[in-house]
Design a protein around this nucleic acid. Sequence first.
DNA 1: CAGTATCCAATGAGATACTG
DNA 2: CAGTATCTCATTGGATACTG
Lengths: 103, 103
Amino acid sequence: MDIIVGKWKPVILFHLLNNDKLRFSELQRAIPDISKKMLTNELRDLEYHDIVHRKVYAEVPPRVEYSMTEYGLKLKSVLMAMQSWGLEHLLHLNDLGRLPKKS
Amino acid sequence: MDIIVGKWKPVILFHLLNNDKLRFSELQRAIPDISKKMLTNELRDLEYHDIVHRKVYAEVPPRVEYSMTEYGLKLKSVLMAMQSWGLEHLLHLNDLGRLPKKS
DNA sequence: CAGTATCCAATGAGATACTG
DNA sequence: CAGTATCTCATTGGATACTG
């Protein structure tokens, strides 16, 4: 399941689900705390799993656009379910008087 | 979202969802590769988040039973959705002629 | 612009030994 | 039985510098 979770993948996926296509630099700007290395790694991983499509334009300067694949879009419902659970859970923790933890 | 994912949490949760209640040692036997340390850590974490209930019997030798909380049961649909996506994804990878990866 | 390559610090997780 | 307490090693991830 590490395919869609982890520190960065959900964020990347949410941006791509909301934007149709995004350039590498646009993703960097949308997720300021991620390093190029991590962004590249995660995108390559998602590409390998046919969730994200990588389109390279043979131009100078280079342009690369990332978008969800047809298959990747099927993840949307799962991701949304996880997200809404997460949100409700924050409220629940609050009701219990507990603070969100790191791990 | 690390609350319900990671290396061991999904496995633990599936066992508890299928068993009503399980002792520490039963969980160990059900998940042979997990160490006591990890099992304890993960269970404490799940307990903190009100997903798992820990019942200690004041006996010798000690007995501790773990079960899903009422609140924790609400996770079932999310977990099932993740699981069925995972299963379908294996087939999809196969169709693509790609092998499952570590990361 | 969109990456690689390298190094290094922090974290995660296994093995082992011990305890109420 | 159901854990703690340490120690250690492998893996992650961040920072930085370089490149087609």
